[in-house]
Design a protein around this nucleic acid. Sequence first.
DNA 1: GCTTTGGATTGACCCAGATCAAGGACGCGG
DNA 2: CCGCGTCCTTGATCTGGGTCAATCCAAAGC
Lengths: 250, 250
Amino acid sequence: MAAFDINHAGGLAPAVPREGAGASPCSACSIRNLTICAPLNDIEQTQMAAIVTNIEQPPGTPLFDEGEPADHVFNVTAGTIKVYKLLPDGRRQVTGFLFAGDFLGLANQDTYAYSAEAVTACHLCRFPRRKLEDLMTRFPKVEQRLLNIASNELAVAQEQMLLLGRKTAREKIASFLLLLAKRAQQRGQKDDSVSVPMSRTDIGDYLGLTTETVSRTFTQLKKANLIRLLPNSQVELSQRAELEDIAGGF
Amino acid sequence: MAAFDINHAGGLAPAVPREGAGASPCSACSIRNLTICAPLNDIEQTQMAAIVTNIEQPPGTPLFDEGEPADHVFNVTAGTIKVYKLLPDGRRQVTGFLFAGDFLGLANQDTYAYSAEAVTACHLCRFPRRKLEDLMTRFPKVEQRLLNIASNELAVAQEQMLLLGRKTAREKIASFLLLLAKRAQQRGQKDDSVSVPMSRTDIGDYLGLTTETVSRTFTQLKKANLIRLLPNSQVELSQRAELEDIAGGF
DNA sequence: GCTTTGGATTGACCCAGATCAAGGACGCGG
DNA sequence: CCGCGTCCTTGATCTGGGTCAATCCAAAGC
């Protein structure tokens, strides 16, 4: 098996051929309906394909850093990306994990407001920002789609603020696992067990906890028979309903 | 003086006449350049005005609740609004405070994802969502503007996650005061002192703290001569530079 | 004026989660 | 198969901010 196992996240076939800016791999894109390309017909799709570059991102490598000129936007086609912000002393807040279909790079200023890094090996479609903007004026559908994506992300962000500001460690972990499960389901993966490809540290930085607390809380949920830790970073949600209650703050 | 002192927030004249759906108070709108109307010319503005209703919102009254059908969107023209989410047991996260010029009500689902309530007496422009959507297809500029607003809010939300997940109480309060100052400045208000019209409880619910901690931290900053608490909910930021350092996590 | 009332402040104490410190368990390269 | 590095887990202890409980204070009403 290749060095980059993009199937790490649990059995989804590569959505896009791995090479270059070529003709139109987009026509074969299995997750098109999740991306910004969703509203385009085949002809329009071709124009979109003309400005896109397919890139590969090995695990642990940065995609861009906060403050860099925001020259590109991206669509994840496979793998897991984390985006985060840092304080000067190194404290870190992971503001999101992105999966196949997710869009990133939206910046209203001319620099990125956060850093992005591959968690697992990733494939992405890269669009030059300027060119995508041109294309958006020609296809308002795309702009509309982007507005939809943005307002969806806004709702997600607000949910995350509720989590960060008001939930306990136990509630945070339960919410996190259910979120992963929901996202995996959206991508059409089986939902008897969830892939958790990111480290305890990343999870802690996402939930406003330390690694130790994340680990302890996993153990605690395991002992309560609410989850099972399986090999290959898989977690089985044995008592989904009960987890939902915990996550919801009941 | 009238029962609703919309100048509570510090000396800004009412931006919009207080009555009904009338002809076009918009032409006199002093904060147009802050709103979604910014990109429109006078003729387009008139069409916008045709679908808008000016509403008044007394302090403490709800504008809408999470889960309600999202039939309207709003532009604040005067006063302070808070938006928040609740957990079943009553824990609350204020996800934002909105001021003159701010837009609210974006919902990608057909229901509001959060509740909104007036903190001070407020004036707002209310748009029927459906009609605004129609108008957006005719004026892509408005949709573009909305996308800008949304991506801006997204950046703000990420900053807030960093605050909630990783900052100390002291850093949170400093960040909060500076945010209020910055927002007031954007609206063209003097910045020697900031108006803090919301209660300690609201501030706590915004920053993921309790009232007591908010109060204690204010006292602490006061004793360190970084701020002064003035009458009428005004706070003077005596040592802005030092506050910036604290807020930034240095 | 005096009283009421709903924040705001302050104090005493407590606890969830952080910090500090070992181990343990893989997975990987040699 | 062994050794090494990285991540994960677990334990012991500490602490920032929460909780509980009085006041305090200022605006509003009588």
